[in-house]
Simulated scan of single mutants.
Amino acid sequence: MTKKFFSEQQQAQLKLNPYVKTVSAKAITYTDEFKEFFIDEYDKGKYPSEIFLDAGFDIEALGPARIRRASNRWRTAYKEHGLTALEDARKHASGRPLERELSLEEKYTRLEAKMKLLEAENEFLKKLDQLERQLIRKKSK
């Protein structure tokens, strides 16, 4: 599978589009507004390449495979989880560790959440163990 890279000129052109959040030689990140616009237009019966063209994108620069993959990804996410699934999740959590010292209240909140998670995990394991025992009893009869 060959991956289509963006030239410097194509990157500069794509950056001018209001529906582009970021672009590099390898990837493009679209705005949440464009994803919503895409879903609305697709639901009206437009083809993916037509929607990208109407939004001011150079179809040749993007390539049909990139358009198809984005279309499938957004439509699937929308069907499964609605509009919130189209939002860029990276804006809410960078994945970087917290560098500042946590307050006692924040530490308490985190520990409480961890405790609830472990309690739920423990309950799940107990139920699983119980189901396994029932299954073994049924097989031995």
Score class of each variant (00 low, 15 high):
E106V: 06
T22I: 00
Y108N: 02
Q13T: 01
K114F: 08
E8H: 11
W74R: 00
A61K: 12
Q11F: 02
P48R: 07
F124H: 05
Y19V: 04
F38N: 05
K127F: 01
F124S: 07
A113D: 13
A77G: 06
S140C: 03
P48V: 09
H92T: 01
L86P: 01
A113W: 00
G45C: 10
Q11I: 00
L128V: 10
H81W: 08
E41G: 06
F5M: 09
T2A: 12
L128D: 13
F52L: 14
Y30S: 06
K21V: 01
G63W: 02
R100D: 14
Y42S: 12
K3N: 14
A85G: 08
W74I: 05
A12D: 12
K114T: 04
L53G: 00
L128K: 14
Y47Q: 13
K46F: 15
Y78K: 14
S140I: 00
K4G: 04
K141M: 14
R96Y: 13
T22H: 08
P18D: 10
G95A: 08
T29E: 06
K107W: 05
A61D: 13
K46E: 15
P48K: 12
L98W: 05
D40N: 12
L117A: 15
T31F: 12
L62I: 02
E101W: 00
K79P: 05
T22A: 00
L135P: 00
Y78A: 12
P18K: 14
A89H: 08
K126I: 01
F37T: 03
K107C: 00
K35G: 04
M1V: 06
G45A: 12
E60W: 01
D54N: 15
R96I: 10
W74D: 09
L102G: 01
P97H: 14
Q10E: 15
N122Y: 11
G45H: 14
T22N: 09
L62T: 04
K127D: 10
Q13Y: 04
L104E: 15
R100S: 10
E112G: 03
T2S: 08
G82S: 07
M115H: 14
K127T: 08
K4R: 12
E50N: 06
K15M: 01
A77I: 02
N72T: 11
V23A: 00
I59Q: 12
G56Y: 09
L53Y: 10
E60Y: 04
D58C: 14
